[in-house]
Nucleic acid binder design. Sequence first.
DNA 1: CTGGGCCCATGACGCATGTCATGACGGAGT
DNA 2: ACTCCGTCATGACATGCGTCATGGGCCCAG
Lengths: 214, 214
Amino acid sequence: MNDVAAMSSQIPTSIRILMADDQHLVRGALAVLLSLEDDFEVVAEVSRGDQVVPVALACSPDVALLDIEMPGLDGLAAAALLHEQVPTCRVLVLTTFGRSGYLRRAMEAGVLGFLVKDAPVEQLADAVRRVARGERVVDPVLAASTLAGGSSPLTARERDALVAGRDGATVADIAQRLFLSEGTVRNYLSAAISKTGARNRIEALRLAEDQGWL
Amino acid sequence: MNDVAAMSSQIPTSIRILMADDQHLVRGALAVLLSLEDDFEVVAEVSRGDQVVPVALACSPDVALLDIEMPGLDGLAAAALLHEQVPTCRVLVLTTFGRSGYLRRAMEAGVLGFLVKDAPVEQLADAVRRVARGERVVDPVLAASTLAGGSSPLTARERDALVAGRDGATVADIAQRLFLSEGTVRNYLSAAISKTGARNRIEALRLAEDQGWL
DNA sequence: CTGGGCCCATGACGCATGTCATGACGGAGT
DNA sequence: ACTCCGTCATGACATGCGTCATGGGCCCAG
């Protein structure tokens, strides 16, 4: 008896889930969907990335289901923090975009599962169970293309210069934001453009984003 | 008896719903959520805008729940077609972005309800019921900002020039795509930039998009 | 300690871009 | 009929942008 209890694995207790997504409706709907399975229990819902760790500390979930696009803190950053501060909590990332770089960054953040939002519904519950068991769950097609894509050739500052120009800022604006000289900014942008094979910084931005290099 | 049956309004029959969203997971989850209400029946699910009308013709739903960002055909265009070809079907648009222009275009397309995806969950069922009854459902805050925004100051070609430059195309590229001279393109872009109050065509693109002028 | 890589900067060159003036054509409205 | 407005075009000008060469400071690995 003692032995059986100590096995810690197969008491028929439910999997405790934390959900993070900034869109109330989809978060709620997914929570309902998961709650219908009788071995799941959604113990917390948050709408901002920076709430993930505090809430996880409070209610110790088995699995955290994180969206990537979130205010406050990016879901991948949240995953990294979570992995470090609440290592017992496995992470399943659930995102709209199947970008290579997202997957790469997710893996670096210690994420176990990576699911795209247009996966068939049946897959979700399955993925949660497997992640709870400690298995890796990744779409093989996406995994392959990620491997093929290689890792980012951009240096930190080149990346900074690119993202600082997202909203259509001029070189002068970017220079101000990064506390750099205009010439330096132009150099970084130029490097980023040539590395991505683009002809504009706009195109470079788009390409880099698709590759997940931002 | 005859009279009662002929009243057509209050037989306790369920509201037939068609769902269109390209993300399987959220579409499925929302469908489940709605199916839990016993006066709802999700009779069809599609993942592309161009499937909306054919499927609606086949299964004659009372309410169509349309996402905007969809492959094949934009949800708003689908709504317009639906309104014209299946006028008995009321439309509720459900979108990620609460952009003024989306709302405006939705209204022009004969849409009855407009709901953002981060609305609280309880609101969805309520919105569906009200739309089914023929009531308008729109977030008052969004409605106000839309009214304030006014309608697009851009001419058709200015708009064309802007959108043709979305992916970071050069002026020469845009000129080729629109079969115009480079100078003309520059003129259009210049006009668009000054009308939006931007300093770049990139910024102009962003601003115009936020206002829904594209 | 000596490359090599990244960070930061400067200056100069050439092309792309944004602005402006100007003009022609056609449709819509008074 | 005349005028306004949108469409298309040209040419000229100023600025912004992308490229390149060059150099100094820094840190890390060989």
